[in-house]
Simulated scan of single mutants.
Amino acid sequence: MFKLAVCAEMIFRSLPFVERVRRIAELGFQVEIWDWTKHDLTELQQTGATFSSMTGYIEGDLITESGAQTLLKTAAHSIDAARRLRCPRLNLHGTGLDGHGMPVKPMPAVTGPMWLAALHTLTRVARLGQTAKVVFCLENLNTTVDHPGVPFARAADTMALVKAVDSPNLRLNLDLYHAQIGEGNLIELVRDALPFIGEIQVADVPGRCEPGTGEINYPAIARALAQAGFRGTVAMEAWASGDDELALRRFRNAFSV
């Protein structure tokens, strides 16, 4: 029913990174990676894995002209890396994140001019994606637990921007872990967002571990997605609560409808 992917940054962490990728692929999942500059792309190619998504920029932001120029430049480099890995989706955030997930430029408030600047930058990103035949996905984040200070963080924010740009080359990376912390009402959220989704990411709350370890009823969400006609990629971006392979079985079971 769905294509299932697993984030190699968070699973099988006792293994070297390339071995994590290989093991995830051997178990029948696609593979998500984060900052591609930290990995040997040739080694990743040689694993034979199918890659679902990767970070689509290295530096920059959506709201300043210098930040936008930097984001577009590093997005172009990311497209080159994505071509090597045959990765169809490139992930974006409201601002650059440091190595600990904190915003490089935290924002106490987002103003009207910032919204207009973000819309302009994302329109340029979508044109870049159209030319390169890739899809950029704007991810929602939570500002309560993991990413305080990130602008345009809520799913409502990312959806508003993607709708306004109105391009098939800019879609949502709808992260349901972040949405549960920030907004809740997940089944209605996925139904509303369905026309704009490029990929869905999942982890349970609290703890950011695999489905079935917290409060989110992921089998119900999977049924709602199936009934709505979603046939795309669902990626587990979560820590294993214990055994890694057991965590992946729980993920697969939650989305087997």
Rank of each mutant, 00 (worst) to 15 (best):
K3C: 15
A5S: 03
M10R: 06
F12M: 02
V18T: 08
I24Y: 02
E26Y: 04
L27E: 01
L27T: 02
G28I: 00
G28A: 07
Q30N: 11
I33S: 05
H39I: 09
E43A: 13
E43Q: 11
Q46V: 08
T47P: 07
T50L: 15
S52L: 05
S53C: 14
M54Y: 00
G56A: 01
I58C: 15
T64W: 12
G67P: 04
T70L: 13
K73G: 10
K73E: 04
K73C: 11
A75T: 10
A75C: 06
A76G: 05
H77V: 12
I79C: 07
L85T: 11
R86V: 12
C87D: 04
P88S: 01
P88H: 03
R89S: 14
R89E: 13
R89G: 13
N91F: 11
D98K: 10
D98F: 08
M102Y: 14
P103W: 01
V104K: 15
M107H: 09
A109Q: 14
P113Q: 09
W115I: 12
L119A: 08
L122N: 07
V125W: 05
A126Q: 04
R127Y: 10
L128K: 02
Q130K: 05
K133Q: 10
V135M: 13
C137I: 05
H147W: 06
F152W: 10
A153N: 12
A153I: 11
D157R: 12
M159Q: 10
A160Y: 10
A160I: 07
K163G: 14
V165D: 11
V165E: 14
S167A: 05
L172R: 05
N173E: 12
L174N: 10
L176R: 00
H178E: 09
A179P: 04
I181F: 05
E183L: 06
L189Q: 11
R191Y: 12
A193F: 13
A193K: 03
I200G: 02
Q201W: 01
A203R: 00
G207K: 10
R208P: 02
C209H: 13
C209I: 05
P211G: 04
P211F: 11
P211W: 03
E215V: 09
I216A: 01
I216M: 00
P219R: 02
A222N: 00
A226D: 15
A226I: 12
Q227V: 15
Q227W: 12
A228K: 06
R231F: 14
T233K: 00
A235F: 03
M236Y: 03
M236R: 03
E237D: 14
A238L: 02
A240C: 03
A240M: 08
D243I: 02
A247P: 00
R252W: 07
F255T: 10
S256K: 13
